[in-house]
Design a protein around this nucleic acid. Structure first.
Lengths: 229, 229
DNA sequence: ACCGTTTCTTACAAAATTATTACGTTTGGA
DNA sequence: TCCAAACGTAATAATTTTGTAAGAAACGGT
């Protein structure tokens, strides 16, 4: 779940925003002052910050500048004065968006979603080409050895991961059980290929919606398995 | 110099945009049709695309979708129909911004600049720059080699600091124990990787709230460790 | 539809890996 | 030089993963 920090001294506005955002499944925290807000913002625990311009102690411009020193997370500035907009732009603070009060809550949610999506898109991009595999609802990130199945992380053991990676790296190719065993367990290993069956089963348990009717790893009778695409 | 592609069938509008953008030092190219525009867009020679929704041959929605398959460059959609805005959002095309005609040229330039700046900001290599790292409640200051954990300084020893820095410099990446040992102790070192285990333990003792349920440094069974983010 | 073969599925025990603690040695600063 | 902190090693405990076996189910050819 994404977390949003609202730095806003008008309690009524802040709570309205919070209620709306929470109803869309966001995790929301409110800070009423500039100084404490800045501290929270720099904690790095939030995915997006909604920042009022006029604040006690430290104003929104300064907070935005300081956030940008430390991170690139989306900052959405809010103001009631139209002339602030030019100032935000002119100062080159690096705010991602700005809205003038009053604004509709649905407009706020739409923008928040858009910014979060873009941020994910652009920062996920640093995973260079070939460092991850995406096939249907399955996502394999090699550097982190993580596997996501429809947004949820599948906690695979070492052997399960290697098995999946090998299969998914060669979509549709059929691997004999013996080959799988040799490539993952090693040529010298003394076990037998029945082990593969059990591991395939355990893997399916974790990545398939219905392990008995697998969508990803298909059994090729009398031969072995393949990753279906 | 940044290059901008305008895909727009109304010549007058396109040329107005072009003149204005050029006066701000941008390199501008105009395409009047959807199909040729898409081709140009996929060429990868532009830094930003201004995209009209209603176009001959292929419409703006489709172009946007296809651009997003291939890259993350900023796409600014333009339309004269207000209801298109909701459509752009609803479809989740990944457009970065949208403007309704008529709009002021200075507004256009301001947005273009903002999107280009953000894109540069987010795609710049993260690990290179920065004297410090901030992830969740953890703060690592490289010049002073100090580590703060939720406002409190953690007194790390040399090896502990190097371990943490290496891990935190590559968030989520899994390091094998052997690699950690080699990179911190040196290739020539005669010890073994079990040492890493003990140091990880000591490090956790200092930075984790509950060292037995680590929030930062995760164990990857059978492989090594990684800094979780 | 039957039968031999292959795979699925489950449960349990063995094996491997990491966590944790303790202790002796080394290092660097006072 | 002395002392305290840092470090490496080893032994043990705790935990997770893995291999094996055995009965059930599914398949394919006849």
């Amino acid at each position: 779940m994404k977390s949003i920090l609202i730095i806003e001294d008008e309690k009524a506005i802040a709570e309205l925003e919070r209620d709306y955002l929470e109803s869309y499944g966001f995790n929301v925290h409110i800070e009423g002052r500039g100084d404490t807000g800045l501290q929270k913002a720099l904690d790095g625990e939030y995915d997006l910050i909604i920042l009022d311009v006029m604040l006690p102690k430290v104003d929104g411009f300064e907070i935005c500048r300081q956030i940008r020193q430390a991170s690139n997370i989306p900052v959405l500035m809010v103001t009631s004065k139209k002339e602030d907009i030019d100032k935000i732009r002119g100062l080159g603070l690096g705010a991602d968006d700005y809205m003038t009060k009053p604004f509709s809550p649905s407009e706020l949610v739409a923008r928040v979603k858009a910014h979060l999506a873009r941020y994910d898109r652009l920062t996920a991009d640093k995973t260079k080409r070939g460092e991850h595999i995406r096939i249907r609802g399955l996502f394999i990130d090699k550097p982190s050895r993580r596997v996501m199945i429809h947004e949820n992380e599948a906690m695979l053991t070492s052997k399960e991961y290697e098995l999946l990676l090998l299969l998914a790296s060669h979509p549709n190719r059929v691997f004999e059980k013996e080959e799988l065993f040799e490539r993952i367990w090693g040529l010298d290993s003394n076990g037998d290929a029945a082990t593969v069956t059990v591991h395939i089963r355990r893997l399916r348990e974790k990545i398939e919606h219905d392990p008995s009717n697998p969508q990803y790893i298909e059994t090729i009778w009398g031969v072995g398995y393949r990753f279906k695409v």
